[in-house]
Design a protein around this nucleic acid. Structure first.
Lengths: 113, 113
DNA sequence: TGCCATATGTGGCAATGGTATATATTGCAT
DNA sequence: ATGCAATATATACCATTGCCACATATGGCA
């Protein structure tokens, strides 16, 4: 998953992955990056720098909302939570992904996928 | 499948779709575009102009080879066939797609996918 | 003390597929 | 016959995407 081509596969699915990551509860950027890498077994790994850019984009679109968490003796963090619009978008993107993945798998002749 | 976001999903999978389309036999650009749209039930649709660009790219990389077909009383066409390198790349991209699709579906919480 | 993982941020970049536009031919309907 | 849609290829420019290099700062551990 580290070839040039695979990099392109990520385009468009990054938002879905992040939104899905935030579905359960709010998380900060670094955590999202780590979770995506972990949950995918290392198959999908975003550059942290890319991650922040993505988060800003999602926030600008009103799908997530950031909040600074500053506790004493703790590193400052900005956690992001899904907004209602973000939840709707997540559902929409899930549906889109399902259709898309099924179509690609079918044409590519990949079983189940 | 006509939202802005879905457009981005296509990036990276276009090559796999085209290579898979040419696996059975050589086809010309317009035909490839039509087949992808048809086989996906209209879910995935490439702009013909994009398709030609993609074909040139694949040819430049040595994965497909174009050949002008000029028969009397027929429109001139350029058909593309997989090269051995293209066949190898198709196999590689299939594998990459399988891993990627499984990972995304898992994180996104989409069943089977 | 030094180093690494954590945590966020910015600026510039390469690659992708889209869009607009152009040209030409075939076939079909009016 | 005429006009229009579908077929078929081609090119130039464009918006968007995630990557990369780099910068800053803190917490934990040896």
């Amino acid at each position: 998953m580290d070839r040039v081509l695979d990099r392109e596969l990520k385009k468009g699915s990054a938002e879905l992955l992040i939104l899905a990551c935030l579905e359960g509860r709010a998380r900060h950027g670094y955590d999202v990056a780590r979770r995506i890498a972990d949950e995918s077994g290392g198959a999908i790994r975003f550059n942290v720098a890319s991650l922040y850019g993505l988060l800003y984009r999602l926030e600008a679109r009103g799908w997530i909302r950031g909040r600074w968490i500053e506790a004493p003796n703790e590193r400052r963090r900005r956690t992001y939570a899904l907004t209602p619009a973000g939840r709707a978008m997540l559902a929409e993107q899930r549906e889109g992904w399902k259709l898309f993945a099924a179509a690609v798998s079918r044409i590519a002749g990949v079983e189940h996928g």
